[in-house]
Amino acid sequence: MIAVENLSKRYGETTVVDGVSLTVERHSITAIVGTSGSGKSTLLRMINRLVEPTSGRVLIDGRDTRAEPAYLLRRRIGYVIQGHGLFPHRTVAENIATVPRLLGWNERRIGARVRELLEVFALDPATYAGALPHQLSGGQQQRVGVARALAAEPLVLLMDEPFGALDPIIRAKAQDDLLDIQRRFGTTVVLVTHDMDEAFRLGSKVAVMSGGRLLQCDRPAVLLTRPADPFVSRLTGLADRAMRLLSLVTAGEAALPGASDGPAVAPTTSLREVLSELVWSGADSARVIDVDGTVRGRLTVAAILARGRP
């Protein structure tokens, strides 16, 4: 668990982060959103002490981050930035091995870990271990960047607009990968983004920042239904908040008992997609069916619409 307590950062007269308190649950993803210059990166960088706070403190699993030298702290925390920051003079394998080397792992263990991560990220070790970063595509470089951050099995992963430089299709894939990996390793992730869709898709909680202050940090649905500040609702989008809300609920969760002769949808489909399907096909209800064919119930247009209101 990460506990941020009354954290502030001032540069001269300007306060960049202003008294932020925030708790990040273990094994969860928290997305920090806000306009550019609102202090998101500074807040994130204070967690691994790339920026030293002016006041306040950060506890990770109850331990003050200032209890040890900053560089030792950072070796236990993964860090991914936009534009990946891979070392251009080192091979993919060497890049991934950076932190394990710093921690003094033995070569056998390093080699095994590098191979494991390359496989997890669908990069064939035979082809890519010895490649230099510039020989990879943008999406591959990004994956190596994440693999490198995860190499020493950190419990916490900090990501600053990690997918900002990717095109939409590769970005969606990278987001799916992140969700998979987060589940697989149980990492606690704090992710900065300015993309609302990304925040809502990945974050079990979303923190909204403005002018250095934390306006609200809660589950996405709460942000939509009970915004703490007009700015929060403006940022999350007034015009399509209903649709956003629908996209947070899956067909499986919302299905009601009953039969339907409408189109079949999987339980993992979001209500937003189900509604779109119903509009398109002209039916007024859909069947929710598991992969193995079990009927989980039905969804009527009215039932879906009801879910789009607070």
Binding site: L50, Y71, L72, R74, Y79, G83, G85, T98, L102, L158
Partner: peptide, 18 residues
């Protein structure tokens, strides 16, 4: 040196010397 590379190096826990 690309700033992103330097940032990544510090972020991974290299000391200034390393």
């Amino acid at each position: 040196c690309p700033p992103a590379v330097l940032e990544a190096a510090s972020g991974m826990g290299m000391s200034a010397r390393q």
